[in-house]
């Protein structure tokens, strides 16, 4: 991945679009500290975070929902949510945030004592999103949140996302479904083989010839 320049303003919802292997996940993993950039910098709220470890970055208010959700299968639903609020700041707000997650996904409350591995695919992803919210983030990064889910479930997840946004969270998401990305986001970046090739607000991008040809076949 190289020459990637990207910015997200507070309160925005921004999409990163691209095919498999174009570097989208790498980008999100680097922001959250799982990998470190060889060059360049990543700034969050005015601080350089490019050398910080993931647990520091979570403390600063960035949460990543990794590809596949990565919930803890042998913890209960409630334990999964509880561990989401592990950092000291979020811990004091834990019960308040838990109520908000349960409001967003009532099904999680009814299954809170079950082991997470017994949930359905859609519920697992709701749990993963809820768990990310438990850390009380300012910026949330979503890596292919809807991958492999039925369209109805995807609608549910995006409805939740809009609610989350109403609360003032900033969202940066990676999505393979271009149509979906361009509907949900304010702005989008298009990546190809590790570079950003196009960016702009979604209304303009929809009209862009390259995007039309590559993704809508018209």
């Amino acid at each position: 991945m190289w020459d990637v320049s990207l910015s997200v303003n507070s309160g925005e919802i921004v999409a990163i679009i691209g095919a498999n292997g174009s570097g989208k996940s790498t980008l999100l993993n680097t922001i959250s500290g799982l990998m470190h950039p060889a060059q360049g910098s990543i700034e969050f709220a005015g601080n350089d975070i490019s050398v910080l470890e993931p647990f520091h970055i979570v403390d600063l208010g960035i949460a990543l929902l990794p590809e596949g959700g990565r919930i803890f299968p042998d913890l209960t639903v409630l334990e999964n949510l509880k561990i989401g609020s592990y950092n000291r700041k979020a811990r004091s707000e834990s019960s308040h945030n838990l109520q908000r997650v349960y409001q967003l996904f009532p099904v999680l409350k009814t299954k809170e004592a079950q082991l997470a591995k017994t949930l359905s695919g859609g519920e697992k992803q709701m749990l993963a999103l809820g768990r990310s919210l438990m850390s009380d983030p300012k910026l949330i990064l979503l890596d292919e949140m809807s991958l492999g889910l039925a369209p109805l479930l995807v609608n549910d997840l995006y409805r939740a996302l809009r609610e989350i946004r109403e609360r003032g969270l900033t969202i940066l998401f990676v999505e393979q479904n271009v149509r979906r990305s361009l509907t949900e986001a304010d702005r989008a970046y298009i990546m190809e083989t590790g570079r950003i090739v196009l960016s702009g607000n979604v209304d303009d991008l929809r009209e862009e010839e390259k995007v039309k040809k590559a993704y809508f076949g018209t």
């Binding site: 799982l34 470890e53 993931p54 647990f55 990565r70 803890f72 561990i83 989401g84 850390s135």
Partner: peptide
Amino acid sequence: RSAAQDRMAAQLMGI
């Protein structure tokens, strides 16, 4: 227990 099940996901929880 989280770290035992998924090291990377545990790090993303701030652990």
